[in-house]
Structures are given as C-alpha cells and as structure tokens.
C-alpha cells in the first residue's frame, strides 16, 4: 500500500497520531504536498463523507476523521501556501444568533474544506448583520447558517432579509441546516438550499459556488 493510501485509510479510521506520522513521512519523502492533501487527506475525508451520507458511518467516525484531517493539513499548510492552491469557492459559516452549538456547524465546515472550499468560520451566536457584512467584505459565494434549536431557527429568515436589504441577495446563496431545519422551512424563509447532513451540504456548496 502506498503511503498516500495509508494516509487515507488511517484518516478514515480516525487515527490521529498515525496520520500525522504518515504525513510527515510523505513530506520527508518529497511527495508533492498537494498530492498528500488531495489524494491522501481530502480523499479519505470524502470517503467518510459519502459513508456518512449513506448511514455507513456515524457522527463519532466523522469527528475523529475530521480531527485527523485537520492535523494533517496543519502539517502541510506551510508548504501548501507556497503553491497557492485555488479554492473552489468561498463560504462564510456560523451558528445563528442566540445559539451556541457548533458540532454540526463544525462538521459542515470540515466537509466543505475537504471539498476544496475556502470556509470563513464566524463561530456561534452570529448576528444576521455579521453574516452579511462578512459575505460583502470577503466576497463570499455562500452564507451557511446553522441552528440546533427551534427557538433560534427563525434568525435564519433575518439573515435572508438582511442580505436583501444590503442588496447582495443576487450575489450570494444562502444555505440553512441543523436539527430543526427542513426543506419546507428553507423554502418558507426564502433561503436557497437545505441539506439534511454535513456531507450533502458540502456537495451543495460546491455546486452553488460553481454557478456563481
């Protein structure tokens, strides 16, 4: 098995320490950092994402895989910056105002990054204005809003209204997701996209960025 395949395999098992060792070895062997990233780390994470979509793996497996991916990327970062890797699009993501939960949001962020998107993480308890201002300042293609609570999900409609008021509604797509969110809710508030899981959200964001 090649070292790149080993990275992918161990990432899928969530083996943090092994992934770090293998990435370091691959760097020492002079393997192209973008190959380590794309064919090792991101490829492994994409497999996990697909399995998650199909209920073949569960939240814990995704969390440990994502941690291993992030650790590998940290090692590659100084080398990748030099190569100026082009992202597939820019997304600002956050948990809406009044809501402090971020496991779901972080999963979506990691899945999006594994698809080659640049993700600006606004954290939790994010106001509609902060979403929209970031989208303007950083020229984001997509605003992605997360909520865990039924009491906070309505903030998402404020994000849509705020984007309309700022005159950027035709320039940015708004994605919504989280425990209480449904497709019907997404349509009702005038958002553009709802997906039921993190991996599908990443796929959808890539598509939305591509058409902008």
């Amino acid at each position: 098995m090649s070292i790149i395949s080993e990275i992918s395999e161990n990432l899928q098992k969530g083996r943090l320490k092994t992934v770090k060792e293998l990435v370091n070895s691959a760097i020492d062997e002079g393997i192209d950092p973008s190959k380590i990233l794309n064919d090792g780390l991101l490829s492994g994470m994409n497999i996990i994402g697909e399995k998650f979509k199909n209920n073949q793996v569960y939240v814990p497996e995704v969390l440990v895989a994502a941690r291993a991916m992030n650790a590998g990327i940290e090692l590659l970062k100084p080398l990748l910056n030099k190569e100026k890797i082009k992202s597939k699009g820019r997304v600002c993501i956050g948990t809406v105002q009044g809501d402090l939960h971020d496991i779901g949001k972080n999963l979506v962020k990691m899945m999006m990054e594994s698809k080659g998107l640049e993700v600006i993480d606004l954290g939790t308890d994010v106001s509609p204005e902060a979403f929209v201002n970031t989208a303007i300042e950083k020229s984001c293609h997509v605003i992605c809003c997360s909520a865990l609570l039924t009491t906070t999900m309505d903030v998402m409609s404020e994000v849509v209204k705020c984007a309309e008021k700022a005159g950027i509604r035709d320039k940015v797509k708004i994605m919504v997701g989280g425990a209480p969110i449904t497709r019907e809710f997404c349509e009702r508030i005038g958002a553009d996209c709802y997906t039921s899981d993190a991996a599908s959200a990443a796929d959808a964001a890539v598509e939305l960025c591509a058409v902008q």
């Binding site: 098992k13 969530g14 083996r15 943090l16 939240v59 814990p60 497996e61 969390l63 440990v64 941690r67 291993a68 496991i103």
Partner: peptide, 11 residues
C-alpha cells in the same frame, strides 16, 4: 461530550 466520547471510543 460527544466529541470526547468519539475520540475515546475510536482513537
């Protein structure tokens, strides 16, 4: 926590 449970169980 969900995260800690996952790390312990799998890695």
């Amino acid at each position: 926590s969900v995260i800690g449970m996952s790390y312990l169980m799998y890695d």
